[in-house]
Design a protein around this nucleic acid. Structure first.
Lengths: 216, 216
DNA sequence: CAAGAATGACTGACCAGTCAGTCATGACGT
DNA sequence: ACGTCATGACTGACTGGTCAGTCATTCTTG
């Protein structure tokens, strides 16, 4: 992003941003259908027609809001820095950032739901576009951990990544839909412990093998 | 459910069911908004007005579809029977049934999304109503496993149940949104292994303690 | 021939998107 | 300094299409 913008362009971009911010709140509060363009305009104290100078239509405005949200998430995840580069700290802290982000920005969850419910024909929900962009770096990262024998090698890396990702994805939605019953930090600890060690006791780990058969 | 229904009532109930079945498919295929009452009627070869003899409105019809889906899930989960009552088999098989059900009935996932996106003011999404109804039995079940030292006791039962539930919930949605890249049975095995043992290697388990701190 | 079931044309509310018109600003000429 | 004009950002009344729900009428059945 260069700053080589004329003052006019700059103002325009800024205004566009204000619109996105206001629209995000209203879309999340009211849902896509019930959030009329008139209302977005009213909220900003401008006329409806003006919105169409910045966006080609309601759908484009909405998708701009979703995208902004996922960019904010991306930014939050990139702020993860671990002092001595401890890989497990890096995992734990990324989990923390993810849960914290959506705890603080529930409106973005609502937009993800609305997006999927209403624009059903889109090739891929925005969340997964961004998720996939992060994927290859995580894959390399886990590969190193496997090579150095620090995580188990009897499961495919992609299956591991999927499980962790799905656990977080599900946690985010559930928190939003029915609320957390415990403080975020406790939930975070539970998620990390579950991810690292699973549910079995130490004694049972040795006894139990190959439970996942399918003789039913 | 008694069978003490007059033939007329019976016919009525049956017809109602046919409507729900057809509407489920159309709601899932088209989304709530784009699925007009006219179309549901047309699909069944009846007039729109007839639908209003069976349901008070579009919303009621839709919610009946969602509820039917969750009842079907409930039925599928109740079919879990384990020969020698092995608790871990019971867990594994329930996971299997859950994943399999939504793999075979993706339309019900779509309805869950639509429900949450459009009826935002409902007290609780239908999925969680049914989930909560199953909860206490699972809590007792896990309590026994803890008491007998077969699962770890350093995490709260509800946190464990939440993690497992969220993992499955997230997996279901992700499968539906972007598809599985591996066969269902492989995914199932990965989920079960992850749930039981987590990601750490055996060597690392001993070394690593208390990673989930929050000094950031 | 009731009585209830089914019909489908009709209504009224709703709202995204349009576009003819207004207005603030600033540039230019006198 | 002042009037004139050009620009384009902004406005908001209006249109056209959509669709849930209604109800007077027709059909079916016991």
């Amino acid at each position: 992003m260069s700053t080589a913008l004329s003052p006019a362009e700059h103002r325009k971009a800024q205004r566009r941003n204000e619109i996105v911010r206001a629209a995000t709140r209203l879309f999340a509060d009211l849902g896509y259908a019930a959030c009329e363009m008139d209302r977005v305009a009213g909220e900003l104290g401008i006329a409806k027609g003006t919105l169409y100078l910045y966006f080609n239509g309601k759908q484009e405005l909405f998708l701009a809001c979703v995208d902004q949200g996922m960019q904010d998430l991306q930014t939050a995840l990139e702020q993860v820095v671990v002092p001595d580069n401890d890989p497990f700290r890096r995992i734990a802290q990324s989990i923390w950032r993810f849960l914290q982000f959506f705890d603080e920005n529930p409106q973005h969850i609502e937009l993800l739901i609305q997006e999927r419910a209403i624009f059903r024909d889109r090739p891929q929900p925005t969340f997964f576009v961004y998720r996939d962009a992060r994927r290859s770096r995580w894959r390399d990262f886990y590969q190193q951990l496997m090579d150095s024998g620090r995580i188990r090698t009897d499961l495919a890396i992609d299956d591991l990544l999927d499980s962790i990702g799905n656990l977080l994805y599900g946690t985010m939605f559930t928190n939003y839909f029915v609320g957390r019953s415990v403080p975020l930090c406790q939930q975070y600890k539970a998620v990390v412990e579950f991810t690292f060690r699973g549910i079995l006791s130490e004694g049972e780990r040795e006894r139990l093998t190959g439970i996942a058969c399918q003789d039913w």
